[in-house]
Design a protein around this nucleic acid. Sequence first.
DNA 1: ACCTGAACACCGTTCAAGT
DNA 2: ACCTGAACACCGTTCAAGT
Lengths: 200, 200
Amino acid sequence: MPRLADPALPERRRGQILDAARNCFRERGFRETTIEEICAEARISPGMLYRYFGSKADIVAAIALDARASAESAFEQLNESEALLDALADLARTFLQAFSAEGDRALLPDIWAEAARDPVLAKALKARDAIAAAKLAGAISRAQRAGGVYPALTAEDAAEALLAGLEGLALRRALWTEEDMNAAVRRFRALALLVLKPKR
Amino acid sequence: MPRLADPALPERRRGQILDAARNCFRERGFRETTIEEICAEARISPGMLYRYFGSKADIVAAIALDARASAESAFEQLNESEALLDALADLARTFLQAFSAEGDRALLPDIWAEAARDPVLAKALKARDAIAAAKLAGAISRAQRAGGVYPALTAEDAAEALLAGLEGLALRRALWTEEDMNAAVRRFRALALLVLKPKR
DNA sequence: ACCTGAACACCGTTCAAGT
DNA sequence: ACCTGAACACCGTTCAAGT
């Protein structure tokens, strides 16, 4: 088998294409950007692009999974923190930032629309989500044992509810541009307070 | 000015087109259905369709606003009911049904993706949302005065949080097909319980 | 006044040909 | 082995022509 001229080339190319795509999507959105525009930005030909991605949808899918992966680190840190609420606020900020890289507020709805029609992407996102939900549930039950969080709560259900709330807030932020990041994070914090600390 | 052959025709045509579009979207989704297919289903020509709708996006926009309007009745009934939680569960069911007419689970994400790129649709949806949020907030503060709901809650914030949660749950249901309607409604009820009745 | 459908423009994708 | 870009297929939209 012939050895590759440069074994790192494929990975570099992929990154190059994804960077170009992210730039274009930010400017004009997923639907409005053209394969040709991505190619121009990445300085390659269409033929080349299709060697690395099977379709335009595959490109958003890859971006979506990248963003999820980068948001995942915030879920890791949940257990390290003493103050669960502060950690949750950080998590919300990281999540919102990962999916609105440099101000593309519509990326998340694009991803969701894509996922709703593409079972492969949906499944991949769901797998990521299950991991995140488990980590969140773990942090919640840890906090329950330590006191400070209502003990009768089912940690898994609370985690699900919080994730749904976070995604709902992200959606509203995407549609209604005025709302800035900090406001969304505050809202999430308030929601988490209501859900987790029902004793007052 | 010449009088119309049939003054009701335009309205009938619009309905005819929207019905056809809903049917097609349900089968194949917004992106995958063709103007030609909608025309075939509605038994008109493309030229005719474009007399009634400026673009394909305008068709989803009209469907989205119709669905919102039909969900709005559930918000009206919030104040009539004695048991706020039951009324909220009904509301969730009506909302989810309005946006998944005959099993098109991906309609809502399509609408959101469209709205995120189309300021006109976003603004129209936001106006609807403000009405719904106000009604929900009204019902919450009414329930607060009657006891049964944590009185220190800011009704507006709680309403916002519940709407975000509802949309988040709707999204998750759209992406992960397994989850059936009743499960989603139960989840929303549980969330509302946590948010509204923090005294235990 | 109402309607048709062929034609146009545009864009995702492929593939024969280059180096 | 890696890459190009012209060509193809498809679909949203328009408009000259019909009744």
